[in-house]
């Protein structure tokens, strides 16, 4: 096997796994921003808390990994509802700066909060046997977990697209993103729709937080800050509220970021930001965003 093909396939598989993770976490943020026009910088905090719930369930209560992911999805989705109802709702009509400030306050408090409980060091997780080791695909061997990540991501993407394009609630969400006033006047309860969508997005973030523990080298309090920028970048590059755009942006940025760090260990982390600035200069509304 040529070393070139070997390298390319490694970059693609690792990059794709990372891209899936980016999509799972960012899609909720994209919908919240498109639907409610709300700059939710605390989205990364929900992902972080999902990661901590997963770690705790697996390492302390011995819950199987897959079940822990599911529980953290439900738990964080439910937890996010009072936040939306009692905190965010007051700021939908306020300025962007106010939204940014309130949610940064949440980020600070949540980072401190998880440090009180779990400490500042990264929490690692023991993977179940079926996700350990590597798998030989004939031309190259890959870690099983990355392959699992890609398959799980693809399933979630398919489910989301189906839900949005083919179900009634999906149609309602798309209608509300396009024109909220019109959607309300044809009888869609956008308030309730917002709450449920927000909960779903936060739950997805939590799921991503749990799935990402292995790939990102453990979950730690600064996660909420460190990765927030990446999630925001994915949303901005894709176009707010556009799920297809978010998916493409995650795909492009995930693979580019991994390739950058793989080929240029020094300064490679810088590539993704350069690409972002370039894309947003040419298309300030994002790849698939509306004008």
């Amino acid at each position: 096997m040529s070393p070139f093909l070997n390298e390319i396939s490694t970059v693609l598989v690792f990059g794709l796994a990372y891209a899936m993770l980016l999509f799972i976490i960012s899609v909720g943020l994209s919908i919240t921003m498109g639907l409610m026009g709300f700059a939710n910088l605390a989205h990364g905090s929900f992902a972080m808390m999902g990661g901590y719930v997963t770690v705790t369930l697996v390492t302390q209560s011995g819950v199987p990994f897959a079940a822990a992911l599911l529980i953290s999805f439900v738990a964080i989705a439910l937890l996010s509802i009072p936040f939306e109802r009692f905190l965010y709702r007051h700021l939908y009509r306020r300025s962007e700066l106010d939204q940014v400030l309130l949610t940064i306050g949440l980020v600070f408090a949540s980072i401190a909060g998880v440090t009180f409980i779990w400490g500042p060091d990264p929490q690692l997780i023991q993977m179940p046997n079926y996700l350990k080791g590597s798998v030989d695909l004939g031309f190259n061997t890959f870690p099983k977990y990355r392959i699992f990540m890609i398959i799980a991501g693809a399933m979630i993407v398919a489910g989301l697209f189906y839900g949005l394009e083919r179900t009634k609630i999906g149609a309602q969400i798309r209608a509300a993103v396009d024109n909220r006033t019109m959607a309300e006047s044809v009888g869609i309860n956008t308030d309730r729709l917002f709450t449920w969508t927000f909960a779903l997005g936060s739950g997805m973030a939590a799921l991503g937080g749990g799935l990402g523990i292995q790939i990102l080298g453990g979950i730690k309090p600064v996660f909420a800050f460190e990765y927030l920028v990446i999630f925001l970048i994915v949303v901005a590059v894709g176009g707010m509220g556009n799920i297809r755009g978010t998916f493409f942006a995650a795909l492009i940025l995930g693979i580019i970021d991994f390739a950058g760090k793989f080929y240029f260990p020094e300064g490679g982390a810088f590539v993704i930001f350069a690409v972002t600035i370039l894309v947003l200069l040419i298309r300030p509304q994002g790849l698939l965003g509306k004008n």
């Binding site: 962007e96 925001l232 970048i233 901005a236 930001f273 972002t276």
Partner: peptide
């Protein structure tokens, strides 16, 4: 708006 915010952070 948000794009500007993201870009200032990115820089």
């Amino acid at each position: 708006g948000l794009t500007l915010l993201v870009l200032t952070m990115a820089v």
